[in-house]
Simulated scan of single mutants.
Amino acid sequence: MSPRGVTIPDLRERLFAAAERVVARDGAAALTSRGVTAEADCAKGVLHTHFAGLDEFVAELVLDRFARSARHAEALEAKVGQATVAENLQEVVGALLDSLPPAVVGLAMTRPGAVSHTRDGFQSGAPAFDAIQHAVSDYLQAEQDAGRFAAGSDVGAIALALVGTTHHLLMTRNFAPATDTAETVKRLLAVLTGS
C-alpha cells in the first residue's frame, strides 16, 4: 500500500483502472470506494480526497474514457492515405467499444448523481459522441478529398451512422457475444465505406 502523505503518480488513472478491474471481475455491485482503493492499493480515504463521492468518481471515469476515445478519433487525421478507410475506422470503433466496461456504463446511467455530473460535464464541453462524430466526418472528408473515399458521399451522415451504431453496440454489448459485435462492426463498415 502507498504510504500515507506520499503523492501517488497518475492517481486518477490508477483509481479508474482499479474501478474497471473491480467491475469486470466482481460486477457493478462491487464498485465501492473501499473496493476501488483496495484494488488500487491506496489508502481507504484517497478516493474521497479527490472526488466528492462515488457518483462523481463514476462520472469522471466515464468522462475520461470518452475524452480518450475522442482523442483516438481525432488521430484519424494523421491516418489519411494510410491503410484502408475501413481499417482506420474499425480501429476507432474498437477503441470506443473497449473504452468502458458495460457495467461502468450501466452505473453511470443508473446512479442519479453520476448521471447529473456526467451531463454537466458534457454540457460544459467535455468530449462525447458528437466530438467523435465530427472527427470521423472530418477524416472521411479528407479521404474523399484525397480520392480514397467515394466522391459525393454524405460523410456527415456516414459518420453519424457509424457513431450512432457504435453507441448502440456500446450500450447493448452485455447481451451480445464479442464475436457478434465484431462481425456487426465489420459488416457496417463494409456498407458505409463500400468495401
Rank of each mutant, 00 (worst) to 15 (best):
R71M: 07
A190T: 08
G106M: 07
R71V: 03
A19D: 07
A131D: 14
Q133L: 03
G106K: 08
V23T: 15
L63D: 00
T118R: 06
L162Q: 05
A161T: 05
Q90H: 11
A70K: 04
L76W: 07
R173I: 01
T165Q: 09
I132S: 10
E91V: 03
S116P: 01
A75D: 07
D64W: 13
Q141L: 15
A142Y: 07
G81M: 11
V58E: 01
G27H: 08
V115W: 04
V163W: 13
V62E: 00
E39R: 13
D10R: 13
L140S: 02
D120T: 11
L54F: 05
L96E: 03
S137G: 03
R25N: 00
R68F: 14
Q144V: 02
A18K: 14
R71L: 09
D120Q: 12
L54V: 07
E60I: 05
H167E: 08
F122M: 10
F149M: 08
V58D: 07
A78S: 12
P102V: 09
Q133P: 02
A178R: 10
L140D: 02
R71S: 09
E74G: 05
A86E: 12
G27V: 04
R68M: 10
G121E: 04
R173M: 09
T172K: 12
P3W: 11
T7R: 15
T32N: 11
